[in-house]
Amino acid sequence: MLRYLAARIGLIVPTFFGIIFLTFILIRLVPGDPVEVRLGERGIEPERHAALLRQMGLDKPLAEQFLGYVAGVLRGDLGVSFSTQQPVLREFMSLFPATIELTFCAVLLGVLIGIPAGILAGMKRGSLYDHLMMTASLTGYSMPIFWWGLLLILTFSVNLHWTPVSGRIDLSYFVDSVTGFMTIDALLSDERGAFRSAIMHLMLPTIVLATLPLAVIARMTRSAMLEVLGENYIRTARAKGLSALRVVNLHALRNALIPIVTVIGLQIGVLLGGAIITETIFSWPGIGKWLVEAIARRDYPVLQGGVLIIASLVMLVNLIVDVAYGLLNPRIRHGR
């Protein structure tokens, strides 16, 4: 297991530097520089343009810029945003809890519904329930997120007035930011009803964001279960006189979990990068929205830093998945 882990961690280092290099180059390949983008149609005298670029350090040769950036990263300094003059790391940290909160709830919903739904469909293959589940998950899988989000807002917010339209909490509450997670902060604050408001605000974005992972997890669980249930050791387990519940939930699920955990890990990685569309629809102040705006402003430090942090987090999640994989699968845990 230790050797397995060491190999996994060893792979992370080159990947990390690859990402630093790629984000740096790709952003600079986009036409236009931060100065031009900010000025728009009005134009600018070449001297002033050059002066502003020099101020941002963009006049130096690419190689020098890159080395400077890498040196900064290694020191833990991701630079300062061109547009807000705030350190990238601080901006990221202030927005990230919103994304984590949403991601966590969405994945939780996807796992809690997706795995049981998939197990049931796998057990009752070919039944009416199986067909319904597969159709529903295919719909969830292929539905445009923005349309689904708007549909939910129209139904539950506009027509039924059950949930708020957007934001993280009602404007009448003033909740001190302690952890950055609105639900926890609301609980910690003395404001009555703040927690309820935070939960209600979280509801629709969670459903919208959970739709895709839920569909993917349910389908993966179903196919993994179908495969595992046909294995010889399942027949052995049944021949031992074990209850159907134990055969499915212990003997089959334990083996089926290996691919399911991989899929869940991948989904978490995707969602951590910020749910751009969901965050935009619900005005959710998270990472996805921040990065999209940074692209429009050609805010190089924000993009480089933001993508790097997210990529690192995805690698971390993958590492955790690999560890879980090892814990679930004795063939990996015990070498080979």
């Binding site: 294995e231 050791y233 021949a239 334990r254 063939r331």
Partner: peptide, 12 residues
């Protein structure tokens, strides 16, 4: 059963 290698659960 016939195939002992696959008749035992690999996870336990």
């Amino acid at each position: 059963f016939q195939e002992p290698m696959t008749s035992l659960n690999p996870c336990f």
